[in-house]
Amino acid sequence: MGLAAAEQFAARGDDVVLVGRDPGRLAAAAAAVRVAGGGREPVAFRADFERLDDVRTLAGELLAACPRIDVLANNAGGMAEGFRRTVDGFEATMQSNHLAPFLLTSLLRERLSGSRVVNTASRAHHRGRPDPGALAGDPERFNAWQAYGAGKSANILFAAEAARRWPDVFSVSFHPGVVRTNFGADRVTRFFYRFAPFLVTPEKAGALLVWLSTAPEAELVNGGYYVGHRLTGTAAHAADPELAARLWEASAAATRPAAE
């Protein structure tokens, strides 16, 4: 979905910056975006969101390369098959889906004034509630779908809280549909997401991301959660401002360099 959106941005004439973890896939994505943009070369940076130092390096590279950032698309999404802590000490799904994008957005915050942040969430947020006091996770209670749901709830809570704390940054979250991708933590889930007949194409999901990135602000709600082109209600926990505030403070503390 992210690649499809990047190609659509490039076809519009926008300057595109790509971020990916795997060097080979990142190079292939850059080649596809170059073609979509009529030969214009995209900028590409490698970063692994399971390493917060990678995110800090990425932020520095983006600040050096981009004097202006009109849209930051926090599109990272993934599900760990089993419990795993990252080198930073957090449950891997929560870090890659929420803590890393939270850190990146925070580090780019001044460059985002007057701009837009679009956070890819999911209806799967109904399956899990983030616990701000337990971002390291519990291996004895781990469930892959609950962890993923908690991460996607965190995306929605982050967008809403950003709208309250950073009124000069327009922030939304959205459910892209059940998209035909290589998503999943096991073979059965990956098979479903690749071959089920009713899935949304990456191109259609990417077009929704582009619309949320480019539609006039008057047509959208700052902090809103969208399913398709419609502002939509969330699970009760994902609409809780107290939980959003506690998650923000816990995320800020979790992503602060140890030296501080």
Rank of each mutant, 00 (worst) to 15 (best):
A4R: 00
A6F: 08
E7D: 00
E7G: 02
F9M: 09
F9N: 01
G13Q: 07
V16C: 04
V16Q: 01
L18F: 07
G20F: 09
D22R: 10
G24H: 11
L26I: 03
A28I: 04
A31P: 04
V33E: 03
V43I: 15
A44C: 12
D48H: 05
F49I: 13
R51E: 14
R51L: 09
V55D: 00
V55N: 06
V55C: 08
T57Q: 08
A59N: 00
E61M: 08
E61R: 15
L62A: 06
L62N: 07
A64N: 09
C66M: 11
P67A: 08
R68F: 10
N75R: 01
A76G: 01
G78C: 02
F83T: 03
R84E: 12
T86F: 10
V87T: 12
D88S: 02
D88V: 11
G89V: 03
A92S: 15
P101Y: 02
T105I: 07
S106I: 04
R111F: 04
R111I: 04
R111P: 09
S113M: 09
S113I: 15
V117S: 04
V118A: 03
A121S: 13
S122Q: 01
R127D: 14
G128M: 01
R129V: 15
D131W: 12
G133N: 12
A134K: 14
L135K: 01
L135I: 13
G137C: 10
G137A: 12
E140K: 14
R141N: 09
N143Q: 15
W145Q: 06
Q146L: 08
Y148N: 06
Y148W: 06
Y148I: 01
K152Q: 01
K152L: 01
F158C: 06
A159I: 11
A163R: 03
A163P: 01
R165W: 03
W166K: 08
D168R: 14
F170A: 12
V172R: 01
S173V: 13
F174S: 05
H175G: 09
H175W: 00
P176C: 13
R180I: 02
N182R: 14
D186T: 13
R187Q: 14
Y193L: 08
R194K: 12
R194F: 01
R194A: 02
F195G: 03
E203S: 15
A205P: 04
L208H: 14
L209A: 13
V210Q: 12
L212Y: 04
E217M: 05
G223V: 09
Y225V: 01
Y226W: 07
L231A: 15
A235N: 03
H237C: 10
P241L: 07
L243H: 07
A244M: 09
R246Y: 00
W248M: 03
W248R: 05
W248I: 00
A252R: 10
R256Q: 13
E260H: 13
